[in-house]
Design a protein around this nucleic acid. Sequence first.
DNA 1: TTATGGGGTGTGATATTGTAACGTTGTTGG
DNA 2: CCAACAACGTTACAATATCACACCCCATAA
Lengths: 154, 154
Amino acid sequence: MTQCEDHEECISTAIERADRICFQKQLKFTDLRKEILRLIWEGHGPQKAYDLLNKLQKTNPSAKPATVYRALDFLIKNGFIHKVASLNAFVGCSHPLKHKECYFLICDDCKNISECCDPNITAAIQATTAQNEFSAKNTTLEISGHCNECLKQI
Amino acid sequence: MTQCEDHEECISTAIERADRICFQKQLKFTDLRKEILRLIWEGHGPQKAYDLLNKLQKTNPSAKPATVYRALDFLIKNGFIHKVASLNAFVGCSHPLKHKECYFLICDDCKNISECCDPNITAAIQATTAQNEFSAKNTTLEISGHCNECLKQI
DNA sequence: TTATGGGGTGTGATATTGTAACGTTGTTGG
DNA sequence: CCAACAACGTTACAATATCACACCCCATAA
């Protein structure tokens, strides 16, 4: 699940990517927003808002819930992270800009999340919404269970 | 979305169905659980836990959050309702026993929810999880947008 | 140059959602 | 009957999230 060979590199790649996109789109990628994005990628799994707050307070003791939630709002709105509704947690997006819809495989054991963005699923969902004459704006697809690595270890 | 010709009948049908299933499965469908299920169906849309608590307190002034959440746990566990993760709300299941997975179309305007349980989506999801060697336990698929009725009214 | 307006942040308060823990009651099988 | 367990009552609290208002910075127009 969401392996990376060199996690430091994986984090900095994500930050640089965001930096680039923000520059192109003229978005303000402030230190605070960058720090929150970094903390999310450091965890490399779904991160809870208040855990992020605790970590942020190590370098920024006066941080408050709103501090974190505002940064999260920015990051979500611009596609750098996703909210995982079934966990009330937040996870870095591996490919911002690439697509609107993201689906997740969530391992209950190792807590890792992988984005699985299958076009077949998207097509099936579109067919169903069309059939129901429903105009979809946002899709939340979160599949929990056990990843292959964890299954092997049993 | 989730229309019903006679809402009183629709509620009582749901209650009777649950009653029957509980009898068959030897589950204790207590007054409290029945009342919560009734309140959920009365709303005929996603109901928030604390709204249910307020309504419950009209007939049961000493009800507490735990009172509601315990009843909700029972109803979810036995398939009579679903939790809508993206809304932190609860909605009655139109066909308990029929299937494990339920997908939702959620109208942002009229707040109605309809279950859309398309086998094609299920198949697409299964194909993807298989391909990722992931053993799925639970699937949350919640599609928000606008239903046809609301689109027409614009 | 100033003013002015919007975005981002600081800060305190509060709202909303959900659980833990422990005691009591009531049912039920042995 | 009574031991055991499920359901419920009750208190407290934990976890998640938002609001409101003040302040600062800085880009831009007057």
